[in-house]
Nucleic acid binder design. Structure first.
Lengths: 265, 265
DNA sequence: TCACATTTGTCCGTATGTATC
DNA sequence: AGATACATACGGACAAATGTG
């Protein structure tokens, strides 16, 4: 399949001080400006650059560790540590075996969700904060859905509801579909920033909601709320849609209240 | 200072299948349930557990790599790869030298912002999308600033403006301070989720703005806008503040119009 | 200032397991 | 089934940084 006699461009250790991509460290970040970049960081950054530039795309195979070590002019351990960074950041996965090696993927949003969970476990973020932010962001998202959504988006949302209803008819809960609905809404806003922000939040919300014993009645209720919202969207009744969404989200928030109370302070 | 004759509890390779932390894989994650956990992942998970449990707290020093390798019954390379995961996740930093070693820190929120930045760069988000999202998110943020900001937050914002003004008087642009103002606003919302979201957005905005030749006149204008906004905040005039912010951001957006036109489609 | 010990950073060689052909 | 190519992992070695006496 994917050709992989890739030559990492002429970076054979051109990396002395890769003028790092956009930095966040403007100020007071108690971090690394002192620590001259380590080799594995430089390698990781170089590969990331190639991915950002589009030279490397999901599905592409990187050369094997040994070959990477040769091309970058570093040892294998360095390459391995660089790959660990890329893997944890959601840029690559590794496959063992003969046609294996590092493969470019795009699972950054998963990565984000996991980090969010870590942050919650470390109590740096409370579920209260998260749900508050969720409501606000989704309200904004919805206003852009009404502005920007195309027929295809509406169709996808309708399919989501349809699938959910079918499950209910079969006596199965539609948990995943109901979470998915909100992610699809974000996509329908046609703004990737919103998509990126909503995805990990919904993953965490799903994680917490899944700890309740769900029941069919509730699933059904959620679907009906989604249906109403979608209807208001198609009718371009913006304010109606937003108020429906708000009601819906506040109800979900109440169901999470147990967790919220636990984490509020 | 920090004692570090820590003995990692009796985990001398008890890790066969550490029942992985909270999972997110609800759906379509094409991921790892098959792949039996690798040694460095197991080590990483064990150490993370100790951090979550509170056994290890920020400031604590972990044993040296060699000692960790001994205690876990694995090689040093495995320990190093585990440390890379923990480092990138914001749980530890490493210091060289005699009193060095892995040290527990808590920079998870930074990690989150960095991941968001990766996602933004990966999705090839247009400046148009970015500025649209920025305006909306900052408006929400500001409404929470007015609700939640404490005197200390206001003070910090005032200091920011003061510092910026001083720079202008000295004939120096106050670029960083003017970017910082928006990050500080996010912090003053007292919702960490907003803080995390605004950070990468401002990083990208700063990156684009820095490509213009800035001038003192403009810097000054920006500071005055910030000052007006802050004044409206302290006077609890919410709507006024928001409309001022909106004007300000739209003006910035106009300055970016060149790029926006280029990237709009 | 100058050794000295400690610890990360890095390289190399080797062995093993595993997936593919 | 056997050969191949790859990740995974171990151990030894040395350089570089850093704090101590």
């Amino acid at each position: 399949m994917s050709e992989s006699n890739l030559k990492i461009p002429n970076l054979t250790m051109t990396m002395k001080r890769t003028s790092s991509t956009v930095q966040i460290n403007n100020q007071e970040t108690l971090f690394n400006p002192i620590n001259s970049k380590r080799a594995f960081e430089a390698v990781s950054t170089e590969i990331k650059k190639l991915i950002f530039k589009g030279t490397l795309k999901p599905g592409d195979r990187l050369p094997s560790e040994i070959e990477l070590a040769r091309q970058f002019g570093v040892g294998r351990q360095t390459i391995r540590e660089a790959l660990r960074l890329l893997e944890l950041s959601g840029f690559i996965k590794t496959q063992k075996g003969v046609m294996g090696g590092p493969i470019i993927v795009d699972t950054i949003l998963n990565t984000l969700s996991n980090s969010l969970l870590d942050a919650i476990q470390m109590k740096k973020i409370t579920i209260y904060e998260l749900t508050v932010a969720r409501v606000e962001i989704e309200k904004v998202v919805l206003s852009y859905v009404i502005k920007n959504a195309e027929d295809s988006d509406i169709k996808i949302l309708e399919e989501n509801i349809h699938k959910a209803k079918k499950k209910i008819e079969d006596g199965i809960q539609a948990f995943d579909e109901n979470i998915q609905f909100h992610k699809l809404l974000a996509k329908a806003s046609r703004n990737h920033v919103f998509t990126i922000m909503v995805e990990p939040i919904m993953a965490v919300v799903a994680d917490f909601l899944s700890r309740f014993e769900q029941n069919l009645e509730h699933s059904k209720k959620v679907i009906l709320a989604h249906e109403d919202i979608l209807k208001a969207i198609t009718e371009k009744r913006g304010e109606k849609a937003i108020s429906l969404l708000e009601d819906h989200l506040l109800e979900v928030r109440n169901r999470l209240q147990v967790f919220i109370d636990q984490s509020r302070d």
